Simulated assay, not measured.
Amino acid sequence: MHTPVNHPAQPIYRAIGGLAGLYLVVFGVLGFFTGSGEPFLGRGDAQVLGQGTNLGFAVFSVLVGGLVLVGTAIGRNLDVLINQWTAYLIMVVSLAGLSFIRTEANFFNMSVTTVIVLMMVSLVLLMAGMYGKVGSDEEHEAWQKARLVL
């Protein structure tokens, strides 16, 4: 009940979520071309947009970004669900990457810059998921009443 319904800026948040998904796809495609010829989960010197990457992370980025773009295209509150869950997934991956940056377990070849950018993208997706919900007038009124009680 605390998530806004029919927020006035809902279309803007939906577009911002789509842009975050587009960034992930572009990063992944560039990472795929940059990391081609190296091992799938190798720890080479491949960098895209100043971020460390490899083929595995490029594929992950394309899949997650494509999922966000599909959710944005479909809408109907499916984008809200997809944005929130992919934001949580990206947060977990980036925190795990931060934990393993200087170890052999850094299988996505992340750098600190990669972790920072991923956390920013996940926060943008979480924000888009929280403010992008569409509902009926009754749901909006119930949200307004619950908001005013707090």
Results as ranks from 00 to 15, higher is better:
Thr53Arg: 06
Glu38Arg: 12
Val26Pro: 14
Gly21Glu: 07
Gly37Lys: 08
Leu55Val: 13
Gln10Tyr: 11
Glu38Asn: 14
Ala20Glu: 14
Ile16Met: 08
Gly28Glu: 12
Leu30Asp: 00
Phe60Ser: 06
Leu63Asn: 02
Phe60Val: 09
Thr53Ser: 10
Pro11Ile: 11
Ala15Glu: 04
Ala46Glu: 13
Leu30Arg: 00
Phe27Ile: 15
Phe27Gly: 08
Phe33Cys: 00
Leu30Lys: 00
Gly18Ala: 11
Val25Met: 03
Ala58Thr: 12
Tyr23Lys: 08
Ser36Gln: 15
Gly37Asn: 05
Pro39Met: 03
Phe32Val: 04
Ile12Val: 13
Ser36Trp: 15
Phe40Leu: 11
Gly65Met: 00
Phe33Ala: 01
Leu41Gln: 03
Gln51Ile: 03
Val29Pro: 11
Gly50Tyr: 01
Thr34Ile: 11
Val59Pro: 10
Ala20Arg: 15
Gly65Arg: 01
Ser36Leu: 14
Leu63Asp: 03
Ala9Asn: 01
Ala58Tyr: 12
Phe60Asp: 04
Gly37Gln: 06
Gly50Asp: 01
Phe32Ala: 05
Val62Asn: 07
Val48His: 04
Thr53His: 06
Glu38Gln: 15
Gly50Ser: 03
Leu24His: 04
Leu19Asp: 07
Phe57Met: 14
Ala15Trp: 08
Gly44Lys: 10
Gly42Trp: 08
Asn54Val: 03
Gly31His: 03
Arg14Asp: 08
Pro11Thr: 12
Gly44Asp: 10
Gly52Ser: 07
Arg14Glu: 11
Ala15Ser: 07
Val26Thr: 15
Phe27Asn: 14
Gly50Cys: 01
Ala46Val: 10
Gly28Asn: 14
Val25Pro: 06
